[in-house]
Amino acid sequence: MSTLLEVNNLHVEVEGKEILKGISLKVEKGQVHALMGPNGSGKSTLSNTLMGHPKYKVTQGQILFNGQDLTPLKTDARARMGIFLAFQYPTAIQGVTVANFMRTAMKARFGEAFQSKEFRKTLKGAMASLGVDESFATRYVNDGFSGGEKKRHEVLQMALLKPQLALMDETDSGLDIDALRTVSEGVNRLRGPELGILLITHYQRLLNYIQPDAVHVLVDGRIVRSGGKELALELEAKGYAPYEKETVAS
């Protein structure tokens, strides 16, 4: 197995406040890692930092993707290398249709290899397999989308942009059980030896559908425990409280 993502002692500040206080993490190709933690523990900060959001400042540590240091790279360069972030709250972009957006994104991601002529067909196929209506293509990006539509749209993009590393930020939030199943099936279909996934979630329920290879518990900007998928079940039973006490005590 080769390492896809390696995070070493990562410290991150947002608007002068330290949120991540030394995170280390390794995701191998083909693996699914779940990152769990209570609200405010820094889960979204980690995903935004990995994607290179300008508001998040790395003050210490390293992010290696396929052995290459990501920290000096801008968001778009990271995306073109094969990193994908499925947003917790995808932003609406009025006046830009999903089709236009996807075409532009695929051109950016695949460059010369992008098959312009095949695009309509590819998009239609990907939409069909996620149970998304065809009219989706002509709607404006995330504009007036329901919670479920937004999440499907994120997974649709993930399917089309074929990342090597997918960061999925609370992809389960706001989904009813049917939508959760469709979205999870969509993600499971994309699993393979080349794709690494970092699943960020507050609740264990998503992990019933997408089985992780490893689970990490993030509390107050630090990973306080790592383990196998049984750790998620333990969290489900006991909650985060024991870990929160630990950090207060330390």
């Binding site: 959001h53 801008k74 968001t75 778009d76 995306a79 830009v96 236009n100 532009t104 950016a108 991601r109």
Partner: peptide, 17 residues
């Protein structure tokens, strides 16, 4: 940020917006 996270450069993102 959303558009750039899909690989669009700052200029392309601005154009689309």
């Amino acid at each position: 940020f959303y558009l750039m996270s899909r690989g669009l450069s700052a200029t392309e993102s601005e154009r689309l917006i």
